[in-house]
Computed example of a mutant assay.
Amino acid sequence: MALTLYVDTARWRAHQQTIVQQFPGIIPVCKGNGYGFGNERLADEAARFGADVLAVGTTYEAARIKDYFSGDLLVLTPFRLGEEPVPLPDRAIRSVSSVEGVRGLVGARVVVEVMSTMKRHGISEEDLPKLHAAIEDVRLEGFAIHLPLDRTDGSDAVQEVSDWMERLRNARLPLHTMFVSHLKSEELGRLQQQYPHTRFRARIGTRLWLGDHGATHYKGAVLDVTPVSKGDRFGYRQQKVGADGHLVVVAGGTSHGVGLEAPKALHGMMPRAKGVARAGLATMNRNQSPFYWADKQLWFAEPPHMQVSILFVPNDMPTPQVGDEMVAKLRHTTTTFDRLVDH
């Protein structure tokens, strides 16, 4: 009895191939919880379609995944002076976002990140002249730029990359490889045409692994079903049941990521209104769960437990049976499954 991730493997891999063909030289990203699949599984998939470089989030992830992928490992988190040393093989490539960082990695393979409009991290234009001497002591794999997902100001992603290419060229720095994130295939093609002597390599995670929403789905197994009447008390806090129905215990709790939600950027009045409505219901202990039964979204009877959730199913709906599975609409990047089933 488990929270299960079901994968339509043929469909999932067909989508991967579509992305691989759109982005020649793609560098798959494998980090965090492995986009819901686990990093070991993604490393295997990347090797299956012939990736020669795998991007990971941290040095700790690189150390854990090195035995599952034989190609190069690109660490996306920039090196910082004084960071805890993590033993990595020579095929590991470190990202660097400062001149000091480059100087601290003598002899290492490095990718220098430039500051984009993300304004997260990256070397500035003013520091480019200082790079000449610094890169002589490292094995420079290229430069990288991490672009924003949305451009509400109407700016052009290709132009932003092109502007940086010109800055690097004017600084007489090597332009053999540029690693990019969050570009469309058409935009990548425009850049490749504009700079034929530079190899552009797209680092892609979400679009590669999660781009076909119909290829995967979660289901939680029903563990117990208890009939209740209006006014009955139940649960840790002994709340009262609001109507006749059934309390259903389903696999999937906070340890799986159920009931946990990352903040979202809201645009427009309707999403904001819905957010206010949800907040109002929450003050009355009314919280919708991610579980569905008979095509209807169910309410949590009480906050989810560590490994299970208790849901309320009213009498006007079909009664679940122990062993049934409920569809769960969960965010892949915050969910940990009990088991993965290929079918």
Rank of each mutant, 00 (worst) to 15 (best):
P227A: 03
A144C: 07
V308D: 06
G275F: 10
A262N: 13
G142R: 02
Q193C: 00
V161N: 06
L247H: 02
A251G: 04
R272S: 08
E126L: 08
R203N: 02
F200S: 06
K219V: 11
H176W: 05
R272M: 12
P28N: 08
A46N: 01
T58E: 07
V102G: 00
D137K: 15
L54K: 01
Q159N: 09
R13P: 04
G154N: 12
R169K: 14
A221H: 11
G231Q: 04
Y195D: 01
N33E: 02
T77I: 07
A63C: 00
R339W: 01
P129S: 10
F23H: 04
V276F: 14
P129K: 09
V327N: 03
G275W: 09
A279H: 13
P318Q: 07
L330R: 07
P89M: 00
Q238S: 15
A47F: 07
T334A: 12
N287M: 14
G34V: 06
Q22F: 04
W12E: 03
Q239Y: 08
A43L: 03
R139M: 09
G242R: 13
T333M: 09
R233D: 06
G154R: 10
E84R: 15
V222R: 02
R169I: 04
A301E: 11
A92W: 03
T254D: 07
M269P: 02
A144E: 00
D212S: 04
F234D: 05
M165T: 00
A282K: 14
G25L: 04
G71V: 04
W293N: 01
V114K: 07
M115R: 15
T18E: 14
M284A: 14
D316E: 11
Y236D: 13
H217T: 00
E113L: 04
Y35N: 02
G280L: 13
D224K: 14
R41W: 08
R207Y: 12
R41L: 13
I65P: 02
Q193P: 00
H332Q: 13
H15R: 07
A47Y: 08
F143R: 02
E261L: 11
Q321K: 15
L208H: 07
A108P: 00
L140C: 13
I19M: 12
S181D: 05
G205R: 06
G36C: 08
S255A: 13
C30K: 00
S181Q: 13
K66V: 08
V111C: 02
V249W: 01
Q193E: 12
L266R: 12
R151N: 11
D156C: 13
K119Q: 15
H182W: 00
L147M: 13
A157C: 09
R80G: 00
A171C: 10
Y195G: 01
V56I: 01
Q307T: 12
R272L: 11
G154Y: 10
Q21K: 14
K66N: 06
E61P: 07
R120G: 15
H305Q: 10
A14D: 11
E45L: 14
V222L: 03
A328K: 05
T18K: 15
A301W: 07
Y6W: 11
